[in-house]
Design a protein around this nucleic acid. Structure first.
Length: 269
DNA sequence: AAGTCGGACAACCGCTCTCGT
DNA sequence: CACGAGAGCGGTTGTCCGACT
């Protein structure tokens, strides 16, 4: 059909493709993905380019494992917002929605299994009290609500909430404290505890960020955890235009990539 | 050593939202 | 206001790799 469809590439990206994409993002910014996809000659869709950049090539990404603080923040924010991964990611500098989503899936599934093992028979799934209603709610809570019988959720023991799937705003709104009590391997801790921690973190850890955000290092890192106040920083990074993005050229492997990309660009230019 | 399993991560798909015309 | 294109988001699937049997 269309020329672009005849050989649109799919699947894993090669290093060369990465290099080209990095270069073109530096040249044109990280907004015009269809344009970049076309002029780069990558034979990828704009969508694919964007995803690759956002989830893998962006210089601000953290590569290390999630810290306990981050894990806890994910936990708390998910309880608050549900599966709003991008929103949650904005509170975790250096983490992507995809990463958080993956983390949540694997870790919560694990917890679910552990919980199921440890669950007393009185809480067995066959018990009607363990059937809970999951709301796949967005923040507006207007999306479709699916009623699901859950048989392996870590917190189904309370008979109220799912930890695996969307707790969401509804969950946060629940006045019933018992329904918002979390349990991990360390034991129970309440949402109040979490909020306390979050508050403390915000108070104590916001200030150093502006110093830690080094354009030389090109790695966004927060001292120990994110706070809402970091938004401006992270958002501005994501929204950097091509001018700003040039500041990120020195990042790690980008030198060779840049050279490659430049020569590539010169060829087609 | 070979096979299996599960975790982690990358990438795609479909839908929704936003914005320009 | 309607429409289309582009961008963003969330869900899902595929693949790789290390741990375990």
């Amino acid at each position: 059909m269309k020329a672009e469809q005849e050989e649109t590439r799919k699947g894993p990206w090669t290093e060369q493709e990465d290099a080209v994409l990095v270069n073109f993002v530096h040249l044109f910014g990280d907004r015009r993905w269809d344009f970049i996809a076309k002029v780069s000659g990558l034979n990828r869709t704009g969508k694919s380019c964007r995803l690759r950049w956002v989830n893998y090539l962006h210089p601000g990404l953290k590569r290390e494992k999630m810290s306990p603080q981050e894990q806890r923040l994910v936990l708390e924010l998910h309880a608050k917002w549900g599966n709003r991964w991008s929103r949650i990611a904005r509170k975790l500098p250096g983490r992507t929605d995809n990463e958080i989503k993956n983390y949540w899936r694997t870790h919560m599934r694990k917890k679910a299994q552990e919980k199921k093992k440890a669950m007393p028979k009185s809480f067995s799934p066959s018990s009607s009290s363990s059937s809970i209603t999951l709301s796949s709610s967005s923040s507006t809570t207007t999306t479709t609500t699916t009623t699901t019988t859950v048989d392996s959720l870590p917190f189904s023991g309370t008979g109220k909430v799912s930890f695996y799937d969307t707790g969401g705003p509804k969950m946060a709104a629940l006045g019933d404290k018992s329904s918002t009590d979390f349990k991990d391997e360390k034991g129970y801790y309440s949402m109040d505890d979490i909020w306390k921690d979050i508050d403390m973190s915000e108070e104590n850890m916001i200030k150093p960020l502006s110093h830690n955000y080094s354009e030389e290092g090109c790695n966004i890192f927060c001292p120990s955890m994110a706070s809402p106040s970091l938004d401006y920083c992270w958002d501005s990074l994501w929204k950097m235009d091509d001018e700003d993005s040039k500041m990120f050229l020195p990042f790690s492997q980008s030198i060779s990539c840049f050279e490659y990309g430049t020569s590539f660009f010169n060829k087609i230019g």
